[in-house]
Nucleic acid binder design. Structure first.
Length: 419
DNA sequence: TCTGGGGTCCTAGGACCC
DNA sequence: TCTGGGGTCCTAGGACCC
């Protein structure tokens, strides 16, 4: 029988902030989304203050002031770097690992069943703590879905941070007390719909007729039922290159003019291209979107998008930024207060298997070399060392991030100092 | 004043082909 | 006048995840 372990960092962003500021060890911490919009991470103490995930910051600001909550803007360079360290540590324990998100990884422990798997998990947890300073919880189960549930239990009901859910009797006991909406894969819509079939707990879903579930909840629902029954349907996925890469952000303030929006879009395009080259892909098309704020019902609403296909796959920022601007010009309408624009690079293919186009080869090589130089310079000297004029200088549309901590581990100027 | 960003998978329906 | 059935591909939209 397969054995999956789900390793999940506890309150990841909050733990990252705490790592470099020990004085915050007992203070409640929250981390805000881009633009300092919503609460996206909370330390244990902040959770106890009943600050909910996803709440707009302005709604809890007074509460935070009252309880001396440390508030941070997102510091993705820091979180990304610490995430990599955690994942590298995990890789020492098994090569069969799927990095599922910035703070989670599935491990396959199939080959370790001769060992005491729970003790092994305990060892993993200890070493990640020692090497990175990030606390993690580990759930063990015969399927990914059950490992996920085991992790949920490990976080809430154990002192050790490890919970083994391979035993069937134990499964029935745990699933009976687990509300169906807490299962991985059950979102808001399905949580509302399932009780109409008499299903409120995970146990009831496990015992439901797979065919009935398939009829009303597609094959995705059926797979879930099987997974709850210990029938592993979701394999470990090897980290494949992304099929689409998106970059979009809200403006720091609403924008009405074409020029600043176009500059913002050029920046997002440049960022997306960097990511794409980082994974060795080229795009065959793009999708550009532009929209007003849905929260400002007092303003006229407008939302539009446009696709564009390239004659040949490309990863050249100049080409892509130009195409993005062209799309923007088609969908932009004066007279609206825009909140957000973005670009998605679509239909990515590996640049090594790309069909060679006889007529473009020379240009392609020049372009690739130029982009390589640009990426190298920006990596070495900071992201804004070299950029397109189209990206603009003023950046009046820039996001707010007034409370970002130093990028301790990725910027020389921001290294922590000991005095 | 202030409401995130980045992904994946699945289905239905239309266009088109033989 | 009568107008099949099966297959593929594409897109839009809806659901989910962190």
């Amino acid at each position: 029988m397969p054995v999956f372990a789900l390793v999940d960092c506890n309150n990841f962003y909050a733990s990252c902030e705490r790592l470099f500021q020990p004085r915050l060890r007992t203070q409640p911490i929250i981390v805000l989304s881009n633009n300092d919009g919503c609460v996206v991470a909370r330390s244990q103490e902040a959770k106890q203050l009943d600050i909910k995930m996803g709440t707009p910051y302005f709604k809890v600001k007074a509460l935070c002031d009252r309880h001396n909550v440390a508030v941070f803007s997102s510091n993705y360079q820091l979180y990304g770097d610490l995430s990599q360290r955690v994942m590298e540590t995990l890789r020492q324990f098994t090569p069969d690992l799927e990095v599922y998100s910035i703070d989670e990884a599935f491990l396959s422990l199939d080959g370790f069943s001769h060992l005491d798997v729970a003790a092994y998990a305990q060892e993993i947890r200890t070493r990640v703590g020692q090497w990175t300073g990030i606390p993690v919880s580990i759930g063990i189960g015969p399927t990914k879905t059950l490992a996920k549930i085991a992790n949920h239990v490990a976080k809430r009901r154990t002192q050790t941070g490890v919970f083994d859910l391979r035993d069937q009797t134990l499964q029935s006991e745990i699933l009976a007390t687990l509300p169906v909406q807490d299962i991985w894969g059950i979102g808001r819509r399905w949580a509302k719909k399932l009780p109409k079939f008499g299903i409120q707990t995970a146990l009831q879903l496990r015992e439901a007729d797979p065919a009935l579930i398939r009829r009303h909840f597609t094959v995705v629902g059926e797979r879930l039922v099987r997974e709850l029954n210990g029938d592993s349907c979701l394999p470990l996925e090897n980290l494949m290159a992304k099929q689409n890469i998106m970059s979009s952000k809200s403006f720091g303030s609403l924008q009405t003019e074409f020029q600043p929006i176009a500059e913002a879009l050029s920046c997002y395009a440049a960022r997306a291209c960097e990511k794409m080259r980082g994974q060795g892909s080229k795009a065959q098309g793009i999708h550009v979107m532009l929209r007003t704020s849905k929260f400002r019902q007092d303003c006229p609403q407008y939302s539009n998008g446009m696709n564009y296909g390239f004659p040949a796959p490309t990863s050249d920022t100049r080409v892509i930024a130009k195409a993005a601007k062209h799309c923007l010009a088609q969908i932009y309408r004066p007279g609206y207060a825009y909140q957000k624009t973005g670009v998605m690079l679509t239909d990515l293919i590996s640049d090594s298997v790309q069909q060679q186009d006889l007529f473009q080869r020379g240009d392609d090589r020049r372009s690739e070399r130029l982009m390589a130089v640009m990426d190298a310079l920006n990596a070495q000297m900071g992201r804004k060392a070299l950029y397109l004029a189209a990206q603009g200088n003023e950046r009046s549309w820039r996001m707010r991030c007034d409370r970002r901590s130093p990028r301790y581990t990725t910027q020389w100027e921001e290294l922590p100092t000991v005095s």
